[in-house]
Design a protein around this nucleic acid. Structure first.
Lengths: 148, 148
DNA sequence: GAAAGTAGTTCGTTTTACGAACTTTTGTCA
DNA sequence: TGACAAAAGTTCGTAAAACGAACTACTTTC
């Protein structure tokens, strides 16, 4: 149970500005580790285990051809590796290299830490409410963007 | 006064996924109006009146040279116009053309409408709390990202 | 009035992102 | 079985986005 105070920002403006803030945090953390934000996002998505191009494409909302390029560059940097699926010889699974795993974890932790710091003042009740409100929004938007 | 339910998503994950969602909405709306997301963002930022390059650069978190390119392309499409400042002959103000104003308003309304729809279920108390929580986060991050 | 700083631009580079056309493999169904 | 549609990725060409370094043109400061 928490009390509500009157916001000076409209609901939608708040969402947009929040998105901007998160993006910026992601950018800062990526740069610290010498990654592009897109690469960091890719690595974060892969720390849970190998994922196929199709699923990555859906998770990142990228066209297949865009994703091919992103994976190519990440592979050239030794962060990621393509494995041919055994069930379906067209498909491939993208998996992290040791270096990629390390970087992915660093990026993930960096973002989480930065956001935790920014949320320092926020009472736990507010955090939970915010998180569950976001869940509601996401549930209405069938496609599932990536974790991070 | 609102009751809090237990979220299944961590606080930071919720923020990241929310950012992704907002970005996606922005992308969809931009595409509908045949704008790039960056152009739409620029137009939204200018609907309040002309702004100088320096301030735009800070608001959008772009290097000066990146912004020059963005404004160039928007100007080439007839959405925006450069005006030399009378006080400082180095500086310029970027202002919307009639077409730019129209598109900026459409984009802004489109994004707001989409987000409102997604938030349909959300009780007003939750919205207000979310908005004021965002204000708290923003206030800790001195630089002020753009409205939209 | 010279030096230092500020506002923007230019240039070259890399990354991102798209769509259309393509190859290979898988599934379907007649 | 064998043709044919569909699916998974890649390739190619293109445009936009973003950066940093070096530059020009004004202002401010001392």
């Amino acid at each position: 149970m928490v009390t509500t105070k009157e916001p000076t920002l409209s609901f939608t403006s708040a969402l947009v500005r929040l998105a901007h803030l998160v993006q910026q945090v992601f950018g800062e953390v990526s740069r610290e580790h010498d990654l592009t934000p897109q690469q960091a996002q890719l690595l974060c998505l892969l720390v849970g285990g190998p994922v196929g191009m199709g699923e990555l494409s859906r998770a990142l909302h990228l066209e297949k051809s865009s994703l091919t390029g992103l994976v190519d560059r990440a592979a050239k940097r030794g962060l990621v590796r393509r494995t041919r699926s055994s069930h379906d010889r067209r498909a491939c699974l993208i998996e992290l290299t040791g270096e990629g795993q390390r970087m992915g974890e660093l990026a993930h932790e960096g973002v989480a830490a930065r956001l935790e710091t920014l949320a320092g003042d926020l009472p736990a009740g507010h955090r939970d409410l915010l998180a569950s409100a976001v869940e509601t929004l996401l549930s209405r938007h069938t496609a599932g963007p990536p974790r991070a």
